[in-house]
Amino acid sequence: MGMFNNWDVGGGIADFWAYIREPRPHRWASWGVAIVLPIVVIWGFSKYLVPYEKPKPSIVYFDNWQATRSEADIRADWVKRAKETTLRNAEKRAEYQRFADSLGIDYDSSEADRVTRETLGEEVAAAAKKKKPAPPQRSTLAERAARGPADATRP
């Protein structure tokens, strides 16, 4: 531990400077490699490891309405979009309800369901809450092996 107590930074720098100044046959080539190699590696990482793609210009189209639209048309459009959003929210809420039921978690959506019924009507709200049919399940490799070899005459 005694050697770490007295630091001679000035002496170390002087020794390093004396070492650098000694004429060696490949001194400048070594310095060139020592400086260029890390620069090339860092540049390569910055260029190719995390590539940056310049955003491409894109055209965004907006709905264009006639200047002669009446207030009733504007409000009807608002109501139509609000009903579409409410329907999507009701479908998503029903998915969350099924997920919570499968995990045994209490999930109370009664207030939101009441708003949905008031907004969309009983039939549409009930249809949004119905369970969607699950996609057909493919048999596993073990099930196919248990059934045995397929009949050669069947397609």
Rank of each mutant, 00 (worst) to 15 (best):
Y61L: 05
T86A: 03
R21Y: 00
I35L: 05
R24G: 01
P51A: 04
Q137Y: 08
R81C: 01
P23M: 01
A112V: 11
V9I: 15
E84M: 08
T140Q: 08
V115H: 02
L37G: 05
G148V: 02
D73Q: 15
F16Y: 01
A152V: 04
R69M: 11
M3V: 12
A94Y: 03
G121S: 04
R93H: 02
D101S: 15
K47F: 00
A134Q: 14
A128H: 02
T153E: 11
A128I: 00
M3D: 14
R93G: 01
A112L: 12
I39K: 13
A125T: 01
N89T: 08
N6C: 05
D15R: 13
K132V: 13
V115Q: 06
T86I: 06
V115T: 05
A72Q: 15
P23D: 03
R117S: 10
W17K: 12
I13M: 14
Q137K: 04
I39W: 15
Q137A: 12
A100H: 14
R98C: 06
W31M: 07
R88Y: 02
V36Y: 11
N64P: 01
I42F: 07
R98P: 00
S139E: 07
P25Q: 04
I105K: 14
V33Q: 06
V41Y: 09
R154Y: 09
L141Q: 13
G104S: 05
A145P: 02
V33A: 06
I42W: 05
G10P: 02
A112K: 13
E53C: 03
Y48C: 03
G121H: 01
